[in-house]
Computed example of a mutant assay.
Amino acid sequence: MKNTNAVLMQWDDPLSVAIPESNQSLFSEELAHFVSEQSTDQSDNSEWAESLPPINPEDKRVVNGGADVNQLAPFKYPWAWEFFLNANKNHWTPLDINMAQDVHDYQHKLTTEERHVYENVLAYLTTSDILAMRNIGLAVMEKMSAPELQIYQARQVYEEALHTWTYQHCIETIGLDQREIYNRYRVVPEIYGKIKLANRRLNAVLTTEMDLRNRDNLEQFAMSYLFFAAVFEGCWFYNGFSPIFALQRRGLMKGTGEQLQYIMRDEVMHCAFGLRVVRQLLKEENLKLDARAVQAMWEESLAAEKAYAGYILRDPILGYSAEDHVAQFQFIANRRAKQLGLSEPFPGAESRLDWLDEQASMRKEKNFFETRVTEYQTGASLSW
């Protein structure tokens, strides 16, 4: 027996109650009438007789490619497709993680200094991930001329939005003043300094009119994307989670720490993909970046990180200080430079947080009574 209570989605308003099933026959009749009219209109139009030659995948390029951007395969960059496949094994949302203990920790266990660290890390990250989402979606993705690159970046845009949701979920769950937290990036100079620097380096390429056949524009784009991949995501994000991980390893704010472990796995992939694209771009376009300009990028990024660390860690917390934070930035910066085949910007820098790599890694063993039992991936293990 037909269920007369069934409904269809309204395309103009998909969240509203939709059209009853009893009216579905009207749509079928209208569709049949439309198809019938079209089939009788077989006017001779040479437009439909045109065709194009098959593409050659070797014509693909990171930018300024000569192939059809709508044709995915054959691949020229199969590694980009692998990034996309691996990213889609990482299904999670912030609702998967139990935050009840964090509420108790924040209210009853954290010191004033630890609350200051926790709040300001979230204040910085909330704005940064929106900035990252806009940069990939508006500045980078539309300039890529190979679809396998664009497809991974589409996933990346989604993940940055997911990360923003995660920070919002933490802020909302803990009960922080959203108006105050979200405005800190504007009113706290040390947080604003990092955002201002990122905007200056990234906003220059936030235009669709940028002609990348112009060598000056191309070099500017390469430097901008290098900053985004190596500094913004590769160092500032990677280093930005460390203060929360320092609390987590002491058994505090474990839910937030686990949220950031999920985000960290995404960001490591974002950084690795970005660095791979930069290397490919420099090779294809025969670009050689100005070593002095690259060093200046590292040094101003370090200056902004020092100011930020001095503010959020003006009073050290147990096991973590501003000096640790800055030293770790220099160590990670050297790692990113080596991945690009560039000179180390801070020779001799050493890791001050020997526990970080282990703490940042996802753990599969979960206490059933503390958190939801969930695997981070639905497929095979993801290599870091």
Rank of each mutant, 00 (worst) to 15 (best):
E305A: 09
A18R: 11
L226K: 09
F245N: 08
A304Y: 07
E350G: 05
A303K: 11
M253L: 13
S22W: 15
G257H: 03
I171T: 05
W298E: 03
L302V: 09
Y262R: 12
T4V: 14
D105C: 11
L15T: 14
L340Q: 06
T127E: 04
L356G: 01
D129K: 06
K2Y: 05
E258T: 14
A307N: 07
A6G: 12
N367W: 04
M362D: 03
T378F: 00
A327P: 02
E21P: 00
S301H: 03
V187P: 04
R179G: 01
T93N: 04
A139I: 01
P54L: 05
V157R: 04
L176I: 04
M269W: 00
E305R: 07
P189S: 07
K89P: 02
N3R: 03
C271L: 01
N217R: 11
A303T: 02
E180K: 14
D12E: 04
M144P: 11
T173I: 02
S16K: 09
L131K: 11
A32E: 11
T374L: 04
L206S: 06
V63M: 10
F273S: 06
M264T: 15
Q153V: 02
E370H: 06
D290Q: 09
R201G: 02
L206T: 14
A291W: 00
F237W: 15
A380C: 01
E50A: 09
N70Y: 13
A322L: 12
L197Q: 11
R314E: 13
V121H: 11
L149A: 05
D315C: 07
I312T: 07
A123N: 02
A123R: 01
F27V: 13
L206R: 11
T371G: 01
M141L: 10
P57H: 12
G255Y: 12
K76G: 03
Y124F: 15
L275R: 10
W48P: 03
E267N: 03
A360T: 01
P147V: 07
H33W: 04
M297Q: 09
M269A: 05
F34Q: 06
Y192K: 13
Y158Q: 06
V205K: 03
N64H: 05
G274L: 00
G175Y: 06
N88M: 12
T173K: 00
A198I: 12
R249W: 12
F241L: 11
L342E: 03
H91V: 15
W355T: 14
L8V: 13
E285I: 00
N286Y: 02
V294D: 07
N70V: 05
E142P: 08
N217D: 10
N135E: 03
Q156C: 04
A246S: 14
Y118S: 05
I332D: 05
E119Y: 09
F346S: 00
I317V: 15
D68C: 01
L138N: 12
F228C: 09
H325N: 10
G319R: 15
Y185Q: 10
A80W: 11
F221C: 04
